[in-house]
Amino acid sequence: MEENHSEPESKPDQKNSNFLPMAVVFVIAAIAIGVYLSQQKPATHTTNTSPAIEITNEKSSDTVDTVVNTYKDGDYEALGQYTTPGGQSEIGLRIKLEKGIIIDSSVEIRANDPPSRRFQQEFAKNYKQFVIGKKIDDLNLTKVAGSSLTPKGFNEAIAKIKAEAKS
């Protein structure tokens, strides 16, 4: 689904909970700030000569669908506010729930100043990986097609290099 730049429609199916949108927006805003900060990094990182090691966390922290198990199906929307170096900023979020799982979502870019708009656009392009997807445990799947389990030696070598890079 495309990101939504237009004004929000009237709230179509806002069921009996205000907590859910707040919880989701809190997570989304945290990610947005994370995106914002990670955008800032390269400029201050030019003197770092250690090898750039990236490693995927086996069990990354839970996304929001564990929070929402008790909520009714339907569409929800909310605004998130956060503070940037350029002042207050705002981002809109709409999600669609089915059986307690977010099955679709869109972000509304509401920032006015160019840097914040740019970060929100970047966020809108990349946030879905954090909110769409279903827990393997919840689906009772016994088989998953994916990248191979990394051999032990590889992981140990990565850990060693990271330790050396820090010392």
């Binding site: 990354s60 990986q129 997807g133 393997i136 097609a145 994916g146």
Partner: peptide, 12 residues
């Protein structure tokens, strides 16, 4: 068979 989410390995 689930299709592993490459960004979150506990999800499909």
């Amino acid at each position: 068979i689930g299709l592993e989410n490459p960004k979150n390995l506990s999800e499909v």
